[in-house]
Simulated scan of single mutants.
Amino acid sequence: MKKWIQATAASLSIMGMLAAGAAVSAAPQKPTQVYIDGELQKDVLTVKQRTMVQLKAFNDPANLTYSYEQATKTIVIVNKTNKTTVRLKSGATTAEVNGKSVKLDAPVTIKDGRTYLPLRFISETLGGVLKYSTTDKSVIVRTPSGEERFNILMHGDLAKAREIAIHYPKTYAGKEIQASGEGYTFAYTFPKGEALRFEYQYKGLINYTEINQDGIAVVKWQNDSYGSNGEVGTRHEAFGESVYFTKHLMLDKNVYGTIDSQGKSTELGFTEYSSNKDLADVMIMPIDGEVRTDQQK
């Protein structure tokens, strides 16, 4: 997970420098709500009735590389997995894909120094997945690596699914409140056998998150247990039997265990990451005998 986070940061740094050339104005229409790898895109354009997203949002360093040819003012995208090379220029209504001209639904658009491309072209040409959510009529897009994570999240190994779940981008059903306390530990609690709903607690602030069938993680309830910032949303029913994973920042130590239906906790083990920094980003450990019960179709 740590390597993936570092690779993502490096790719974003490169992609932030890709935009160049004359800007193309976009009609001020209400944009479609778009999620890419679970993250709500705040900067979406509508050009010629087509949804446009920032190129940098389709971020998949494991499969895609981006570069910019200053001499020709051309953006070059390479999909290392399916051996596809895409070449684009600002304002162009066509793209070159493996040497062949492909018509775009809307021109390559530069706005505020950022490159925007038609959403469908990005997902289909670069090997992604695109679908329309029947839940809230939003558009769901996943990069190739994002699709792999989504499948594990929904159907895969319980410990791996939980690790992905806690790192997933979050949206908020109501306003987001901040913690008012201090603290040096944070904890995740999952119902026994589940990965798609959990509580996260840090500095006295409790967040309850549910992940829907489209892979969108929604924080549905927050409570500042110290009282300063109140409570938002509807409190969920008690988990009953559950498991917990706690990081002690001062001790460089992760502790995990179970909680019975009466609320009694039992520590099962711990990992110390002071001697192995790669373990610092691994919160979730397998629980012996626990079987996943919330796989999605």
Rank of each mutant, 00 (worst) to 15 (best):
M1G: 11
K2Y: 07
K2A: 11
T8C: 04
A9G: 07
A10I: 04
S11V: 06
L12V: 05
S13W: 02
G16E: 12
A22K: 12
A23T: 07
A23D: 14
A27L: 14
P28F: 07
Q29I: 05
Q29C: 00
V34P: 09
D37W: 08
E39N: 10
K42S: 15
K42A: 15
L45C: 13
T46V: 14
V47P: 02
K48N: 14
Q49N: 14
M52I: 06
D60L: 10
A62M: 14
N63L: 02
L64Q: 03
Y66G: 05
T72G: 00
T72I: 00
T74N: 05
I77D: 03
K80R: 13
K83R: 09
T84H: 06
R87W: 14
K89I: 01
G91Q: 04
A92M: 09
T93R: 12
T94P: 03
A95W: 10
V97H: 05
G99Y: 11
G99H: 12
K100R: 15
K100V: 05
K103W: 04
L104R: 07
D105Q: 10
A106G: 10
D112S: 09
R114E: 05
R114A: 04
T115Q: 08
T115N: 03
Y116R: 12
P118S: 03
L119K: 04
F121E: 09
F121H: 08
E124I: 00
T125I: 11
G127Y: 13
V129I: 15
V129L: 15
L130S: 07
Y132C: 01
T135K: 15
K137R: 15
S138A: 15
V139G: 11
V141G: 02
T143N: 06
S145Q: 12
G146F: 02
E147D: 14
N151L: 08
I152F: 01
L153N: 08
H155W: 06
L158S: 11
L158W: 05
L158V: 02
A159W: 03
K160F: 02
K160R: 06
E163V: 04
A165D: 07
H167M: 05
P169N: 06
K175F: 00
E176H: 08
E176Y: 06
I177W: 03
Q178H: 11
G181I: 00
E182M: 13
F186D: 09
A187I: 10
E194N: 03
L196K: 11
N207W: 00
N212E: 06
D214G: 03
I216G: 12
Q222I: 01
Y226E: 08
G227I: 09
G227W: 05
S228V: 11
G230S: 10
R235C: 00
H236W: 09
E237S: 12
F245E: 01
K247T: 13
H248W: 07
H248K: 12
K253R: 14
K253N: 14
Y256I: 01
G257L: 04
T258L: 14
Q262L: 05
G263Y: 03
K264E: 12
T266R: 12
T271A: 10
Y273D: 01
S275Q: 13
N276M: 04
K277F: 06
L279D: 13
V282W: 01
M285Q: 13
M285G: 00
M285K: 13
G289P: 14
G289D: 08
D294W: 02
Q295I: 12
